[in-house]
Amino acid sequence: MTDIDQAKQELREKVWRRLIDGGGAPADSYGKIPGFYGAEGTAEQLARQDFWQQATTVKANPDWAQLPVRVRTLKDGKLLYMAVPRMASLEPFYLLDPKNLGLPPEEAAEKKGAAQVARRLAPESMEPIDVVVCGSVAVNRSGARIGKGAGYSDLEVALLIEAGLVTESTVIVAPVHALQVVEEDIPETEHDFSVDYIVTPDEVIPCTNRRRPRGLVWDDLTPEKIAAIPVLAARAGRG
């Protein structure tokens, strides 16, 4: 583990403890993207924003914490791209079209529902993304964020950047509990991206230090990680 990895892990553990001890999330949130209390409020905050109202396509993680935002995406008539859990497919994104769901939005936006009714797509078959909704453990007001440490959010965004689908006009948001917003610096590496807005149940915080990778950073990927994610293994095999 590098010094940066260690620093990130120490911050994760601090925030998990603070969030659980402070009553912001259930006790079983430790080690996960927290399913924080008040997550429905983040969907309401997002829905009021001009960039959300103008958006037609949204990409979101499959975490429980983002379920209200995924539901709101569909109810607002937007296309929803949802990452396949652990990117365990050559086509690592689900497409949920609100015009053709086959289930109520509340069910279709869950992992189980999406697996039943959504089409799976590779980035080459997707439309440009207007808003990216990313699960986070901690985020600071500059926009630096950390997830639970598995790296899937970074890989998903990097793939979409390489495909020309996440661009300078794409807005990246982190819906979190207020206790997940930290004052500390969050160390960043080449593959990390920052968020443009932090969305809590009570406020929307603009972030000023935009950071985006140019795409996949292969030097940061272990052979085991590449082998475990089919879309990466296929690209490595072509290389």
Rank of each mutant, 00 (worst) to 15 (best):
D5S: 14
F193T: 13
D185Y: 11
Q54R: 04
P201M: 06
L179T: 05
V181G: 09
G113E: 12
T222H: 07
P26W: 02
W16L: 06
V231P: 09
W218H: 10
L90H: 13
R210V: 14
S194T: 02
T167H: 08
E184N: 08
R72A: 06
L221R: 05
W218T: 12
F193S: 14
V15S: 04
T57S: 02
A47T: 02
V231I: 15
D21W: 05
P26F: 02
G164L: 04
K148N: 02
T42K: 01
A236D: 14
S142D: 11
R17A: 13
K225F: 11
E107K: 15
E203W: 13
S29K: 00
L101D: 01
Q45S: 04
T56V: 15
R120Q: 11
A236K: 15
L103K: 01
T2L: 10
P123C: 11
E183F: 08
P105F: 11
G102T: 07
R214E: 14
D5H: 15
A115G: 08
P92A: 02
R70C: 08
L74M: 12
A150Y: 08
E44Y: 06
K148I: 01
E13A: 14
A88M: 14
A47H: 00
I4Y: 12
S136V: 11
I229T: 04
A39R: 06
K75E: 03
I205G: 08
S142E: 12
L80M: 12
Y30A: 00
G147A: 02
L221W: 05
I229G: 00
N209V: 02
K111A: 00
V195M: 03
